[in-house]
Amino acid sequence: MLNKTSRKELRGIRRERVRKKIQGTAERPRLNVFRSLQNIYAQIIDDENGRTLVSISTLAPELKGKLPSSSNSAAAAAVGQLLAQKAVEAGIKQVVFDRAGYVYHGRIKALADAARAGGLEF
C-alpha cells in the first residue's frame, strides 16, 4: 500500500531535518524564510531568548503597493534587501540561513542573494 503524504507534511520533514543542524544565537541569529503562494516572509530570530529581532514581508507598508507582484523573485529580492537594511540598523551583521525545507532556488535564492548584497553575512 502506498504511503500518501501531503506536500505540507513532506516540507515539514525537510524543515525538521534542516533545523536539527542550525541554531540561532544572540551573536549569530537565524534568518528564517517562509514562502506562501502569494507572499514571502523573512525574520531574524534569536533562538536562545526566543525573540524575533527583525521581520519583513511583502505585506509590509514599505513594500505593499510598490511591487507589481508580491509572489515573484523580484519581490523576494526587495524583501531581502529591506531585511538586510533593517538588520544592519539593528546591529546584526552575521546570520545563519534557515531555508525551512524549501529548495535553495528561485524566490528563496533571490531573497538570500539580496540580503547578502545588503550587508548580511551567511
Score class of each variant (00 low, 15 high):
D47T: 03
E121M: 06
R116V: 12
D47H: 02
A110V: 03
Q81G: 00
E62M: 09
Q38M: 13
N49I: 00
F97P: 08
Y41P: 12
A115V: 11
S57D: 10
V18M: 05
S55Q: 14
D47N: 02
F34M: 11
L10K: 15
Y41Q: 10
A110M: 04
T5N: 02
L59C: 14
Y104T: 12
R7L: 09
V18C: 04
Y104A: 04
L120A: 09
I13N: 03
L67I: 13
G50V: 04
K8V: 14
R99F: 07
R116E: 07
D47Y: 02
L67C: 12
L10T: 07
V88W: 00
A117K: 14
Y102K: 08
A87E: 04
G106K: 01
R15P: 05
Q85G: 00
D113Y: 03
T52Q: 03
I108Q: 07
T58S: 15
A115G: 10
K21T: 08
L67M: 12
G119F: 05
G106A: 02
E27K: 12
A60M: 09
T52A: 00
F97I: 15
G24M: 07
G80Y: 06
Q81H: 09
P68I: 00
A84L: 06
K64M: 11
L59F: 11
R15L: 01
Q38Y: 13
R15V: 03
G91L: 05
Q94A: 08
R107K: 15
V95I: 11
R15F: 03
G50D: 04
R11E: 02
A115L: 09
S70T: 15
D47F: 02
R7D: 07
D98T: 11
R14W: 05
I108W: 07
Q43L: 06
L37E: 11
R30D: 02
D113M: 07
G80D: 08
R19N: 06
Y104W: 08
I108L: 12
N3E: 12
A26P: 01
S57K: 13
V88S: 02
A60C: 12
L120N: 09
I108G: 07
R7S: 10
A100D: 14
K66V: 05
A112S: 10
R19D: 04
E16P: 00
R35Q: 09
Q23R: 10
A117H: 05
E62S: 14
V33Q: 08
R14K: 15
E121Q: 15
H105T: 11
G119Q: 01
G106H: 04
L63H: 14
N49F: 00
L111P: 13
R17E: 08
Y102L: 10
V33I: 15
N39S: 10
L67Q: 13
A60E: 15
N72K: 10
R14D: 01
D98V: 11
V54S: 05
V96W: 06
A87D: 08
R7K: 14
G118H: 07
E62W: 12
I44Q: 06
G50E: 03
T25V: 03
P61R: 15
S57T: 13
S69H: 02
A112T: 07
R28E: 03
S36D: 10
Q94H: 14
